[in-house]
């Protein structure tokens, strides 16, 4: 899917390789450019010279957790426009609030529905 003349870039961050595989397939099927990271540090390293439009972020990861990754991401001026979608098994109201507080725009709970996930991503890319 082509929007505004360039292919949207999406970073998928999850420590579960099988989930990354599924997400990568779904996003590539929609035509997005996908980069993968298996923990927080890898994600931040990746974004130093690659600016994604969307970051799909897991919360419970070894080392740096997703909330921390989001907070650091928000401190980088270059990533001002990057949207953050949390995709996590942590589903309590308090977790959600922490997620929004750390700077995320969307919060989705695992296991997710493929169609809902894709339409969310598409909406973001269509309307910002």
């Amino acid at each position: 899917m082509q929007i505004s003349g360039h292919s949207a870039k999406i970073l998928v961050v999850d420590d579960e390789p099988n989930i990354v595989i599924a997400l990568e397939y779904l996003l590539q099927r929609e035509g997005y450019e996908v980069q993968k990271a298996y923990n927080g540090q890898q994600a931040l390293d990746c974004m130093e010279n690659w600016t994604p439009d969307i970051v799909v972020l897991d919360v419970m990861m070894p080392g740096m957790n997703g909330f921390e990754v989001a907070r650091r991401l928000r401190e980088i001026p270059a990533l001002e426009l990057t949207k953050i979608i949390f995709l996590t098994a942590k589903g309590t109201q308090r977790d959600k609030e922490s997620g929004y507080a750390s700077g995320a725009e969307y919060y989705m709970i695992k296991p997710f529905d493929n169609d809902v996930f894709i339409s969310t991503v598409n909406e973001i890319m269509a309307y910002g």
Partner: peptide, 10 residues
């Protein structure tokens, strides 16, 4: 939830 997520998605 983690394996269920993978199973459901795939």
């Amino acid at each position: 939830r983690t394996p269920v997520t993978s199973i459901k998605a795939l």
